[in-house]
Amino acid sequence: MASKDEKPDKPERFSVSRRDFLKSAGVTGIAAGVVGGAAELDAQTGAAARVLGPGDVPVQLTVNGRRIDLRIEPRVTLLDAMRQRADLTGNKRVCDRGTCGACTMIVDGRSVYSCSTLAIEVQGKQVRTVEGLVSANGTMHPVQQAFCDQDAMMCGFCTPGFVMATVALLEKNRNPTEAQVRKGLDGNICRCGTFVRVLEAAMKSRGVARA
């Protein structure tokens, strides 16, 4: 029912055939059948890059300094690979679209949204999750300790992501200003509203020893 000044759509049979939506992205050709597993491209293209998937392919990751061997489809995100295949559930899935930061991991020293990173693409890189911040003897990272001291959490669901974003920020800039800390943590959302104390914790963590 549309308002009076706008023409309502005629009620119509709406068949949810998803195919229509897929033929739409400015792309050539029609959807091909299932492409085989790893294979050479044919000779006419003259190139040699291997095609992997779409089925399960071996993926070898280095996470928190430990090697993890998986067999997964190329479409599996780094976050889902960790949470569903490696039982590293510390980092959370919240928006799943690279906005909220709860999935923040550190890859080769930089913070990334692991929900928007394919696991297959971080092979050969150093991946760190929130679990990896605790030292072998069980001591928390100073940033983790600061979050506890300042009560920089409520429900705690955004917390691992905020901790990782803070660690990445401080590893890049040991002594940021408050404005730099704010900008550095702008990629993370807390719904309980713990920002004030997250900021305090991050500021208190400045200059701390690094992992």
């Binding site: 510390g90 959370k92 705690g156």
Partner: peptide, 21 residues
């Protein structure tokens, strides 16, 4: 008084429903 489950939350040890496998 500091939250007693703070260490579990900041380290990822805390198991939420999403984390139960």
């Amino acid at each position: 008084v500091k939250r007693i489950d703070g260490p579990d939350k900041v380290t990822g040890r805390a198991k939420y429903t999403h984390d139960i496998n």
